[in-house]
Design a binder for these strands. Structure first.
Lengths: 363, 363
DNA sequence: TTGTACGCGTTATCAT
DNA sequence: ATGATAACGCGTACAA
């Protein structure tokens, strides 16, 4: 039989009705004042006062139901522990915040097998739009993306015909940059520590590695190729396996986490970096600059991709009729100590207290 | 004059009305079927069919307005780049997901000066509860926390009288563990690289450091104490400043990011770790195990704190009348190569390919 | 300027 | 089992 709606809300908290009643005005007036539109000075004062007295807090859910927007943007990534996502997220946050919205990050943490379910669930209108960066794209995935009830932008490679806004890079070419650099530095026994081949980036980087070697007329030695996961421990383990059966003079790693694992494995096995083995990572994250020696790394423009994705999303939210767009961010190589062209002195073995400052780090 | 509500929703998407009309039943029946309660086999079939045909997706906002819950939990941290929050988040996620809810992470990124505003905004009912881990607690902060419209659990030190659920550790004692360990290993010129003193953890760790030295009868040499930020670059810079004016034989760092910066600074300056300078970090994150040599670190039980905080939050959501609770997680020390008690051989200088495996890393 | 009344999309209640 | 209808809390035409 429903109580009279002139009092508090179900959970005992004040609503517009509470404020209106206390101020002695209608809920319409109260609402107007609380939203800063209209109201005579006297009304404004009374409503403000009443609101403060009862500690009124607007119910965002109800507001959203009315306005059809939540002001929330979601970002879904697989592994929040990967610094590349941190950089992406910072860039996205900047754009999103500038538009007066809020960014929410959902980390599947690699734990949730069914990312599709998450996608559907999160997209049930709790957010005005979302950015996803999947590393595996199944048909289910794609279907969920395409008929998402809210605007979606995908960061990463996607089928050419997928009608979804998409920001990509060319990690294939990225690997080539690394190989070219190493070959130019005189390396020939170049190894590759990759992530799973059934992932989109894993496959692309594998192809890039083989194409690059072929371009230089170098035959691929399968003993120099190892596959693990896109993570530190797996990268380290993979490198240990590789070192147990081969003697590379350079190592390309499919991301920086793997590269850090490789560095650890190399040093632990007594190899000097870069004099014995040159090392190049990928993603060019903060992690690469945190290592000693600092890691060369192929930048895939993660921040730029994040920024662009956020902009595409905001545009689509503003105008849902836009045709699907596709943007591409070119890779670039940052050369640092781990693959210095003149590896006559390994930084690790400089004994003097006055060693030359490591490049690209400003204190 | 409002259009008849028997068709689509405002943005052209199907609603319960659409489904009901198409199935030739009432919205009540449609709703029941869609929620899996009641309905004759025939009705169920018709509704399911109609829903599939029009691609019905329930509007979570409307559902929440009705049910008074969103099924979302928020976690607000300052710096998502700090691995300690990653571990905390993983632990929280596990508990939250097990309760059938979803975790949303909001990273202020250290950019938003007014975290209080965020707190209020995010708490306007978009989430069923939230966990915050502030490093600075102002009066405003505290006020916002106390009269938050949704349940809040704070991870971190808080005034003893604050009526807010709270999970803390004792980083003061944590620093003591590190100092005790270093003194036992024969170190005497122990330095300290801290974060800002106007933060809660910064102040606590400073106090802990001074208390620990005093307990061992060692006078504090202010030249061995340096303050920066809780981040890598700042930690490295602070260590460089410290090394420019003093010669420590050990360094305690206020977190692992700082410790990594310190390691980089030490190695770049030609110091061996641990033989010349022993190094101990804090938080015992994955980062500590990624370094070479691996970093000793004081665990503040970040995962455990996260887990407990999530449990407290779920309990409070279930029963808001619970009195404020306070839990404490004790610190512990993980000793690794960077402060090995027998520093006769620096791992950095082991030349043999068959070096002993670094402890605590399983490939 | 102010108040009345309706709609946002859903679930729950109460008759039938 | 089913259908009409009242909430949930808010914003806003529209009329006064």
């Amino acid at each position: 039989m429903g109580r009279k709606r002139l009092q508090e809300s179900a959970d005992g908290r004040p609503t517009v009705h509470t404020v209106a009643a206390r101020a002695g005005v209608s809920i319409a007036s109260a609402s107007r004042v609380l939203n800063g539109v209209g109201g005579s000075p006297e009304t404004v004062r009374k409503v403000r006062e009443a609101a403060a007295e009862v500690g009124y807090v607007p119910n965002a859910i109800a507001r959203s139901l009315q306005s059809q927007r939540t002001g929330l943007i979601a970002l879904a990534v697989e592994d929040i522990g990967n610094p590349v996502y941190v950089e992406m997220m910072r860039a996205i946050e900047e754009v999103v915040a500038a538009s007066g919205r809020q960014l929410l990050v959902h980390a599947t943490g690699g734990q949730i097998a069914n990312e599709t379910a998450l996608l559907r669930r999160l997209a049930h209108r709790y957010v005005d739009g979302m950015i996803v960066s999947p590393i595996r794209v199944t048909d289910d995935h794609l279907a969920a993306l395409v008929d998402s009830p809210v605007p979606v932008v995908v960061i990463g490679q996607l089928g050419a015909d997928a009608p979804v806004d998409n920001v990509r890079t060319d990690s294939r070419t990225g690997v080539c940059l690394a190989v070219d650099h190493l070959v130019a530095a005189g390396r020939r026994r170049i190894g590759f520590v990759n992530g799973p081949l059934d992932t989109v980036p894993g496959a692309a980087r594998d192809a890039g590695f083989r194409a690059a070697l072929a371009a230089h007329g170098i035959e691929v030695d399968e003993r120099l190729v190892e596959v693990g996961d896109f993570q530190y421990a797996a990268g380290r383990a993979a490198t240990e396996r590789l070192l147990a059966r081969a003697r590379p003079d350079a190592l390309v790693c499919a991301n920086d986490l793997i590269a850090v694992g490789a560095l650890h494995a190399l040093l632990a096995a007594g190899h000097r970096v870069p004099s014995d083995v040159a090392l190049v990572g990928m993603d060019d994250t903060e992690l690469a600059r945190m290592m000693f020696p600092q890691l060369s790394s192929v930048s895939l423009g993660s921040a730029e991709r994040g920024r662009r994705a956020a902009e595409l999303l905001l545009q689509r939210i503003a105008d849902p009729t836009l045709p699907p767009r596709r943007e591409q961010v070119p890779p670039s190589l940052a050369v640092r100590a781990s693959s210095a062209a003149v590896p006559d002195v390994s930084p690790l073995f400089v004994p003097a207290p006055a060693a030359p400052p490591t490049p690209e780090v400003t204190a």
